[in-house]
């Protein structure tokens, strides 16, 4: 049985179709990725799965419980990590975790034990008495996650859990997710960071404009487009117009120039590289670095939508 089943769900806000006919399934022990640019509908979908927002249409089943009918039972198996730091800044880490534990129905020794465990998972046992407002962004994120683990949920829903944090905390969070998954917890992980989703998730749904435009394993998604490479160049003496000079080169699908970094999506990158360098040279651009990436989720998204993930 799937732990989560979302069947043809719709949600509209005014004239905006935030989620339009989405269906996904998440199995037991799976790390499922929801990838898409900002505004794709990921957070709305997460809010509906977390029972915070009612769908206009469609059905959601969590551990066999239909949301709307057996919502209370459904909630018991969910651990939600919101995109925002949903904590009380003037309370200490321990006070926050105690409160969230009580909200999950814990008390007494069990609560103390679970709070200790959660602080350990967050790597912040030594800062448990400090106020959340005194923590760095990464530490806050870690407590934000720890608060969702207190009742040992079957399924952990993480909405953009690494936004705006330092690389050290980011690595800590990614490792934590893998560790929890190894212990048997299913995870739904939403992000617009392609690398994180690619690193963590066994199956991925790509969302755009409120719809799931592709869903499958990493290999299945890569196979959708064949062999498009990404050529990354660090250049100097260039402006946005460089995109127009490069686009006409045969085999190039997309060019993005931002902050002296040029990203070129192309088939058979080896054959166009010489032509590309020649164009940049004639435009008097100085090339500092070149590297070529294999097909990834970014290029899949580009192929499916004609836009880059972070456009």
């Amino acid at each position: 049985m799937n732990l989560l089943e979302v069947k043809n769900v719709f949600k509209t806000y005014g004239s905006l179709k935030a989620v339009s006919g989405v269906s996904i399934e998440v199995g037991d022990g799976e790390v499922f990725g929801l990838l898409g640019p900002n505004g794709a509908g990921k957070s709305t979908l997460i809010s509906m799965i977390s029972t915070l927002v009612k769908p206009d249409n469609g059905e959601i089943f969590i551990n066999g419980n239909r949301v709307g009918r057996n919502t209370k039972e459904a909630k018991k198996v969910i651990g939600l990590v919101p995109q925002e730091i949903a904590l009380y800044p003037t309370l200490s880490a321990r006070e926050n975790l105690n409160f969230w534990g009580r909200m999950y129905g814990l008390g007494g020794n069990l609560l103390t034990q679970r709070v200790d465990e959660a602080l350990e998972v967050a790597g912040l046992s030594d800062r448990q008495k400090d106020r959340i407002e005194s923590f760095s962004g990464g530490m806050k994120r870690r407590i934000n996650i720890a608060a969702a683990l207190l009742h040992k949920p079957k399924i952990l829903i993480m909405d953009e859990p690494t936004v705006g944090i330092d690389p050290q905390s980011r690595n800590h969070i990614l490792e934590t997710v893998l560790k929890l998954n190894k212990e048997g917890m299913s995870v739904i992980y939403t992000s617009h960071y392609m690398e994180e989703v690619e690193f963590l998730c066994s199956r991925i749904a790509i969302m755009d404009h409120g719809k799931v435009i592709a869903c499958g394993s990493k290999e299945e998604l890569r196979n959708l487009i064949g062999d498009v490479d990404i050529i990354n160049l660090d250049i100097a003496n260039a402006d946005k117009q460089i995109e127009d000079l490069i686009k006409p080169i045969s085999g190039i699908q997309k060019v993005i120039f931002d902050n002296n970094k040029l990203k070129v999506y192309a088939k058979e990158s080896g054959t166009i590289l010489a032509r590309l360098i020649s164009v940049l040279d004639s435009a008097k651009c100085k090339i500092h670095n070149i590297n070529i990436e294999d097909t990834n989720l970014e290029s899949v998204f580009l192929h499916l939508t004609g836009r880059a993930l972070r456009d």
Binding site: L80, I85, A86, M103
Partner: peptide, 13 residues
């Protein structure tokens, strides 16, 4: 605004 209310509801209240 900081979603703690939503989190309380999500936790079971």
């Amino acid at each position: 605004d900081n979603k703690t209310l939503g989190r309380i509801i999500g936790a079971g209240a």
